[in-house]
């Protein structure tokens, strides 16, 4: 097995567009959970409406791609309102269940046969982001030792990481303002914030909308990245990935989701490449694990990782362990 090749695949995974996209969606989740304490387990639903908002605008309404992205974000605002109005007044665990259910409702709806004329049903939609690749300024691939990124990947990485860092900057500005202070107060104790004249519901709603819009933006980028989307790409496991990324990096840290995503994708692609390499080298007997099981191993590893993280290092890589211990809920 070529260790260098496995490592370079892992580094590609850590720096590639997917890592940036997941970081962006996790930044949105961080606004929800890290700063406001909202248990949103339907972030993938926001990604879904973002992706489909973009693709449908382009394919069905001949809108330019940028307008499609805006439509996707607008859909996220509507979804946040529909979801937030009934659930934001309730205890946190209701929001968790309602959001995961809502994301599944959306997936069922988009893949249903009667939505097929618009959404393409289970087959999804393809080829809607030509405009994006038409303006690619890169003309040659980038080669750094064993690492190689082609023009297409470079262009995507530039845009995705650019947007992700812009979003992180936005979050930094927000949480270091009095607005962010109210958000953190809501996370600590809603009633205390209320007793000081803060409209808790409005702040929670603003946070839900804002984080959801970032999720939708990530969904749009995901759609542009693959040029093909199907509803079944937006399953609840994506949300669990995002939670793992956020907690791994450190919830309520501005750079937590970005660091988390880079490390997460490094480990995930490393595991993947390592297993494949080990199997082809005959290190793992076939009766124990078949190549088709690698996907399942990967998910199981994420689950185990999430458990171990939450038990042993809930503040993540750059979180303040002392601060977290104060959490008495």
């Amino acid at each position: 097995m070529d260790v260098l090749a496995v490592l370079s695949v892992a580094v590609r995974g850590a720096l590639g567009p997917e890592a940036a996209i997941y970081a962006l969606a996790a930044i949105g989740l961080n606004i929800h959970f890290g700063y406001t304490g909202l248990l949103n387990f339907g972030q993938v639903g926001f990604m879904l409406v973002g992706a489909y908002g973009t693709a449908i605008s382009v394919l069905s309404f001949d809108a330019p791609l940028w307008a499609g992205v805006l439509v996707g974000m607008a859909c996220a605002v509507v979804l946040a309102l529909i979801l937030g109005i009934p659930t934001l007044r309730l205890r946190g665990d209701y929001l968790a269940i309602a959001t995961i259910a809502a994301a599944e409702v959306l997936r069922y709806l988009y893949r249903s046969s009667f939505a097929e004329p618009v959404t393409g049903g289970v087959f999804g939609l393809v080829q809607f982001a030509g405009e994006f690749y038409a303006v690619n300024p890169y003309t040659a691939p980038l080669e750094l030792g064993p690492l190689r990124f082609n023009e297409r990947a470079l262009w995507l990485m530039t845009v995705a990481w650019g947007i992700t860092f812009l979003a992180a900057g936005l979050v930094w500005l927000l949480v270091h303002s009095p607005w962010g202070r109210v958000l953190r107060a809501v996370r600590e104790d809603e009633d205390a914030a209320r007793s000081l004249g803060k409209n808790v519901f409005a702040y929670k709603m603003q946070a839900l909308v804002l984080g959801g819009v970032l999720g939708a933006l990530a969904g749009s980028l995901l759609a542009i990245n693959s040029q093909a989307i199907t509803p079944d790409a937006f399953i609840p496991i994506i949300t669990f990935y995002l939670w793992t990324i956020m907690i791994l990096g450190g919830a309520s840290r501005v750079l937590g989701p970005i660091l988390g995503s880079i490390v997460f994708w490094f480990l995930l692609t490393f595991l993947d490449a390592f297993l494949r390499g080990a199997m082809s080298a005959g290190w793992i007997p076939g009766f124990l694990l078949a190549p088709s099981d690698i996907g399942a191993v990967r998910f199981a590893a994420v689950g185990l990782g999430l458990m171990l993280l939450m038990v042993f290092r809930p503040a993540g890589l750059i979180g303040n362990q002392k601060e977290l211990r104060l959490d008495v809920r």
Binding site: L39, F41, G92, D93, A96, I237, F240, W243, T244, I247, L289, D293, A296, V297, F299, A300, V302, G303, L304, G305, L306, M307, L308, L309, M310, V311, P314, D327, V328, R329
Partner: peptide, 24 residues
């Protein structure tokens, strides 16, 4: 003295782990 949210997320991890072990 783990918090409820902490345990909730552990449960999600456990769910992922068990489901995919079953899948294998």
């Amino acid at each position: 003295g783990a918090g409820l949210i902490q345990m909730f997320i552990v449960a999600i991890g456990l769910s992922l782990l068990l489901r995919h072990l079953i899948l294998i």
